[in-house]
Simulated assay, not measured.
Amino acid sequence: MQHKVMVSLCLVFLIGCTPKEKSYIPQEGDLVTWKQNPQLIVKAKLGLRREHIPDQFDYEFYRPAREHYLGQFPIDYTPEKFEPIAQQEADSLPMPDSNRQLQFDLKLSNLDFQATDGYLPDHDDQVRVRIEGLTIDMRAEKLDTYKTFLQRKEFFKKNSKFEKYGLTCYPKKVADNFYGCYGKSKEQDVAGVLLDVVALENTVDNRFVQIRGESYEPNKYGGIWVQWETNLNNWDKWQEIDSAIWRLLGTWNSAPSPQKLTK
């Protein structure tokens, strides 16, 4: 009996001391095939990698090998187009983690700056983009971008509508210099873009995201929620940003042909 216990303890120590195999972290230039959903499967060569900003929750949540971050690209970037993958391969691909879905950054100028995963955009000319699936509630209510805009009108000041940069905007009740805007997209089957704008300057002691853009689109790629962030100086570039996002998704998408949405 004592011999068996000793053997068991030895095995425990051996297993505990065996180094775990490290997961591969995707690098710039790697060709990846990442499944957002059955109708949106991105096949792309990765761009410049972002720098991680450590925080106290890294041990629990930071998993760079599982992140679907495509890279940082110029807004006029034209990626290589790949043929649709086979249905068998598509079925075998895992869905992304709920908190590590498709992401990429866009640059609105030729300036060089390092992308990070920090809380705020890294530069005045950066756009951070995140793609998620529509929530169960969104699908149940059959929400799209314009319907969501109408729902939010209760938070806007009455009789305060104004037009700016091709957007319909309202000041918000919550505070001066806070605005909600809606603009129509040039993309087929896309209802439009919602903007939440905070028209205040960032300071050393008070930093925040100045513009958040959102599109809730049930008719694109099986239903996706496009989210992006940028700085106030890019308010007038909202349509250029929107068009670039949809153009890139269309080029990157290599889902099997029968499942692709008609453009």
Results as ranks from 00 to 15, higher is better:
Asp105Ser: 09
Leu93Met: 05
Cys10Ala: 14
Gly47Arg: 05
Leu194Asn: 08
Phe178Asp: 01
Cys10Val: 11
Lys164Cys: 01
Thr135Met: 11
Val193Ile: 13
Gly183Asn: 08
Gln56Ala: 12
Ile241Ala: 03
Asn253Ile: 02
Gln210Ile: 02
Ile211Arg: 03
Leu248Gly: 04
Pro54Phe: 14
Val32Gly: 10
Asn231Met: 13
Ile75Ser: 03
Ala175Gly: 01
Leu261Trp: 12
Ser243Cys: 06
Thr148Tyr: 09
Lys81Pro: 00
Ser109Arg: 07
Pro171Asn: 02
Leu111Gln: 14
Ile136Tyr: 13
Ala140His: 11
Phe162Trp: 03
Gly183Glu: 04
Lys45Thr: 04
Glu154Met: 03
Pro79Gln: 05
Leu200Asn: 13
Ala244Lys: 05
Gly29Phe: 07
Trp34Thr: 00
Leu70Trp: 03
Leu14Ala: 15
Gln239Asn: 15
Leu106Val: 02
Gln103Ala: 14
Lys220Gly: 02
Glu141Met: 10
Glu89Cys: 01
Gly71Arg: 06
Tyr221Phe: 15
Thr168Lys: 08
Ile75Trp: 05
Phe57Met: 12
Gly213His: 06
Leu14Asp: 02
Gln36Cys: 03
Lys20Arg: 15
Gln39Lys: 12
Tyr221Gln: 06
Asn159Met: 04
Asp189Gly: 05
Tyr62Asp: 11
Gln101Asp: 08
Gln87Tyr: 06
Ser23Glu: 15
Glu89Arg: 14
Asn110Ala: 05
Gln114Met: 10
Lys20Ser: 14
Gly118Val: 03
Val197Met: 07
Ser243Ile: 09
Glu154Ala: 05
Trp34Cys: 01
Asp236Asn: 15
Trp246Arg: 02
Asp137Lys: 15
Gly180Thr: 04
Cys17Lys: 12
Val174Met: 11
Asp55Ser: 11
Ala65Arg: 07
Tyr59Thr: 09
Lys237Glu: 10
Lys173Val: 02
Arg247His: 10
His3Cys: 00
Ile241His: 05
Gln188Trp: 10
Asp236Val: 11
Leu46Trp: 04
Pro74Leu: 10
Val42Met: 04
Val42Thr: 04
Phe57Gly: 05
Ala90Gln: 06
Glu240Asn: 12
Cys17Thr: 09
Phe113Thr: 01
Lys161Ser: 00
Ile131Tyr: 06
Tyr62Ala: 08
Val174Glu: 13
Gln151Gly: 09
Pro19Ala: 11
Trp225Cys: 07
Gln126Pro: 03
Leu14Phe: 15
Ile53Gln: 08
Phe162Pro: 00
Thr168Pro: 00
Pro121Met: 14
Gly29Thr: 06
Thr33Ser: 08
Gly16Leu: 08
Asn202Tyr: 10
Lys173Asp: 00
Leu31Tyr: 07
Ala44Leu: 06
Asn234Pro: 04
Thr262Lys: 04
Met1Gln: 04
Leu9Thr: 07
Lys161Glu: 05
Trp225Lys: 15
Trp235Lys: 04
Arg50Ile: 00
Pro218Ala: 11
Leu134Gln: 12
Thr135Asn: 06
Pro26Arg: 12
Gln227Gly: 05
Leu195His: 06
Lys35Pro: 01
Leu9Ile: 12
Leu40Gln: 05
Phe82Ile: 02
Asp236Met: 12
Lys20Val: 13
Leu150Asn: 09
Leu111His: 08
Gln39Leu: 01
Gly222Met: 07
Gln39Ala: 02
Ser23Ala: 15
Glu240Lys: 14
Leu40Gly: 01
